[in-house]
Design a protein around this nucleic acid. Structure first.
Lengths: 199, 199
DNA sequence: GCCCGTTATCAACGCGCGTTGAGAATATGA
DNA sequence: TCATATTCTCAACGCGCGTTGATAACGGGC
């Protein structure tokens, strides 16, 4: 009636269920029991394999995306930012990536560990590109700006389902947001007029 | 030893404690018992006053900021976006505003009600300004873009404490992000070159 | 001085949670 | 075939949660 699964299969099922549940309902409602039910497994097995719920979360948040590939050959494009946004938006369409990203967003706002992972991801995934054009502390500032812009976009499009962002085409958003990213990467950030002395 | 408080005082204390706790630890860990303890009150009193934890959350998320005042007279400034970002960042320094905003961010990612409140706030607070320069569905798209940019900024600066954003001065961030907002409000969003037919 | 609505406390409820430890079922290798 | 390791289930634990209903303390109006 219930033939035993192949070795490693249950573990994989748990991990996948955890990813989707963390993404869909957040840390609080993605209970061990719920994840186990989705995976078709006993709750105790989840603990047996992953040790604790927190460890399971950590295992679930591994970003299944090759950042190097995401940014490879990008300097050949005339508009750097637009191409970058286009690639990012395209990769977000992939269910595993979307799940991991949503998991980070849903969880990272209220869970220390996921928050660290999230902000590290924002920095790391952008810093590589930035450092081809800027150096030193300027580079990390530029990376943080790009990260903030992309995080806001992900939040609106994927998590909150703001209609204007969720239903827009990749090309439309790339055209709208791309120049912003280009400017954060390579533009002048000090402003046209320096900070006014008064008022 | 424990003189009874003035009428309405306990209610206010509960509300304030709820705001700070939702902001600091998110919906899950901001338990009724914890909020009650911070407010110096019995947990049952919290329910008595607010009905349920969800109702308490709704009451806590009322944005204590006059959006009209925030954007008043803004069209006099040469750089619209920079001034808008400057004002927003300044208002975020206020503890009550910061608490409400953090509460929305921390909670909105995993709680339907707060998510709706958050995305409504993003749209509403910007739409007023946008509609002075754009019309129709273009206006809501522009508002969504500004909202996403500001949400990402709030997330990095207030919630995740990304050092480059959290420690930057208001002026520095206004100069960096301002032009982006200006462009989202009034610029050309279709891109310099229209979407290429191939590749 | 008494009454009554407001303000507050207390003990308890049922529930779902993460986690544990014992042990059953199944595969593996000699 | 039999031991042995792996995979999995089961029942139960202690805990903190949101919420409830009875009941106590207080304060203003007659």
């Amino acid at each position: 009636m219930s033939p035993r699964r192949a070795p490693g299969e249950s573990r994989a099922a748990i991990l996948e269920a955890a990813r989707t549940q963390f993404a869909e309902v957040g840390y609080q409602h993605a209970t061990i029991r719920r994840i186990a039910r989705v995976a078709g497994v006993d709750p105790a097995l989840v603990i047996q394999y992953f040790g604790s719920k927190d460890d399971l979360l950590a295992a679930s948040l591994q970003m299944p995306v090759d950042i190097a590939a995401l940014t490879a050959g990008i300097e050949d494009h005339p508009d750097l930012g637009t191409e970058l946004v286009r690639r990012a938006l395209a990769i977000w369409e992939s269910p595993p990536v979307r799940a991991a990203l949503l998991g980070m967003l849903r969880t990272g706002m209220s869970h220390q560990r996921a928050g660290d992972v999230l902000s590290a991801l924002l920095q790391r995934s952008v810093l590589g590109v930035v450092q081809r054009y800027a150096t030193g502390e300027d580079a990390t500032f530029r990376a943080a700006l790009v990260g903030a812009q992309m995080a806001g976009l992900a939040m609106g499009r994927l998590a909150l389902h703001v209609p204007e962002l969720a239903e827009a085409s990749i090309e439309q958003l790339a055209n709208a947001v791309g120049p912003t990213v280009t400017r954060y990467l390579t533009g002048d950030l000090a402003g046209a007029h320096p900070p006014r002395p008064r008022s």
